[in-house]
Every structure is written in C-alpha cells, then in structure tokens.
Simulated assay, not measured.
Amino acid sequence: MRALLVVNPAATTTSARTRDVLTHALASDLKLEVANTEYRGHARDLARRAAESGTYDVVVALGGDGTVNEVVNGLLHHGPSPSDLPRLAVVPGGSTNVFARALGLPNHAVEATGALLAALREGSERTVGLGLAAGTPGTADEAVPERWFTFCAGFGFDAGVIGRVEQQRERGKRSTHALYVRQTLRQFLGEPHRRQGAITIERPGEDPISDLALSIVCNTSPWTYFGNRPIYASPQASFDTGLDVLGLTKLTTPAVARYATHLLTSTPERGPHGKHAVTLHDLTDFTLQSQVPLPLQMDGDHLGLRTSVTFTGVRHALRVIV
C-alpha cells in the first residue's frame, strides 16, 4: 500500500525525534514517502498532487487541525469522489486535534499511530461528511474560493478570538488555553455588536433568522476541547448528517456568563439553550449574511473579513482510516 506522509515540522506537541519514530513505524507497514511542509498551504498542495497522481492509496496528515484542513482541501480540490481519492489518515500533533479526537483516535501521536496501523491492517475505514463554504469578501479583495472544513466554522465573535490568538502566536506566544481565555475576554470587551447582532441566517424556503451576535457552524461534536473536557456547542452534529448551527442573539455580560457555563457543562445530550440561543440541526444549504464585514474562521484558521458566507453540508465526502 503506497502512502504519502505529510508532516508539519512545526506541530506543537511532537518533537523531531517523535516524528522520526512515527515515520519509521508507518514505513514498516506502508510503502511510504515523506514530505515536510515548508509554508502555509503547502500541505494542501502536496495532497492535491497526491490525489491527481492516482498513485497513492493513503495520505497521512501528521500535525494539528490546520494541517488536516489543508490536506483535506488538497484531496478535494476537484470535488468529492470517495471511491477514487486516496483515503485520509490522521496522526494528531497539534494542541487540540478536534478532528482526530472526533474520529475516536487517541490524542497522543504514538498511540494514534498504533491505532492507525491496526486500522490499516484490518481495512477499517469510514466515510465522513464535511462542510463546504464560500464567502463574499469584506473588502474590495478578489473573490474568495470555496473551502472545505472538517469540524467547525465560525462567523463573527469566535473567529475574532481566533484572529487575536493567531496574532499572539505570530509574536511568539504559545498556543495555550490561557491564551484563548485572555483573547476571548479582549474580544468580548471590544465587540461592537454585543447587544444587537449583525448576522442573519437565510435558508431556502424558511424565514430568515436575524440579529445574531454569534454564529458557530458544526460538522461534528464536540465543537472543541478545553484541556481534556469536550465542549458541545451542537451536541447533535455528526459526520453522518448535514451541518448544525448555534447562534446567540445577545452577548451581554449576563448572557455570556450564562452561555459560557452552558458550554463548560455541556454534554452529548445537552448544549447551550435559552431564549437567546438559536440551534439548527442537519442543514444542507444556508447563508450567513452580515450588515458589516465580520471575521471568518474554519477549523481554527482565521480567514479574514467577509460580509456573506454560503455553507453546504456534503455527506459522504471523504474516506478516512479509523
């Protein structure tokens, strides 16, 4: 079985020695080629070439959710065709690894590699649904291409938090939960649409839902992790269904305190709820429209400002080794 291992050498939770060990372990069972990423978007380019070559059975992403997202977008550059594309495998190497953990993989790279090798020997795989989004720029920039996401997207508040975190990481700060908490508080204090949201959800054949101050789109559950604690924004979200949406119409101090508590105590059966919460399940096509340019994120990657984002839930998009 021929495989391409796409390695992010800057992955936050693996050392060079650990990556060498994992590479040798995979090479014992696979005809393995290894490629290290050298720039943002390189994993996407490598996966695209692997898919177009038609010579690989598996593409393995060793890195965090950002590396996985790039590999997925490379594999699906010409659209989903699960029976023709290489299968995706993931070895978690980031700080959170939501996609890998949502698949049921261990959050430790060595243990995950062992699970991956066992799955390859047994021929164990599944087909997952993914999200596809296309946005209208918030400035006079060029049109924004479609982009796939594996577990979540955010338009507005949470994307602003991720943008702040990325700025801090560029300044040398480590990606920690404390960093996210600090930037969430700063985003809240500077948020101009806390009391009157600017986002509207538009769905075919349905009345629009307006005045949202926060919108989170989930492709699976949990939405993220706080340490080892899973956080469920949309508990019903699944790789086997369409997309789910959590929206909040107010971000006042009492509302934020209430819904932050809901998130921290959320379970697979119950997420945020109340009169200011909007929850939608198993959507195939919808648009998030804003009166003003707002930040957009997908799989934890800040993508700049948009005024409109159209989402599509695509079932059976990609085969994954599990």
Rank of each mutant, 00 (worst) to 15 (best):
S28A: 15
T287Y: 12
R182S: 12
T307K: 14
E166I: 00
H77G: 04
T312A: 09
A112D: 04
D240Y: 05
F99T: 08
G104S: 09
H77C: 06
D301V: 12
G135C: 12
L246D: 05
D20Q: 12
A260K: 08
F188W: 13
P192R: 03
V6K: 03
P230F: 07
R2N: 13
E122D: 14
L120N: 01
A118V: 15
F149T: 01
H193W: 11
A115E: 09
M298I: 07
L120V: 11
D240A: 12
G197N: 09
S210R: 14
G114N: 12
L76I: 04
Q168A: 13
T249D: 01
Y225L: 06
V309Y: 06
D158C: 10
A317H: 02
P9F: 08
R315I: 12
A112C: 11
V71E: 00
H276S: 06
L5F: 09
P230K: 04
T113D: 06
Y180F: 11
P86S: 02
Q297P: 04
E166L: 04
Q168S: 09
T224Q: 02
T252Y: 06
D20E: 13
A47I: 00
L132H: 08
D207G: 14
H273N: 12
G114A: 10
A140N: 14
V245S: 00
A61I: 02
V256Y: 01
T55C: 07
A134R: 15
L62E: 01
H281R: 15
T113F: 08
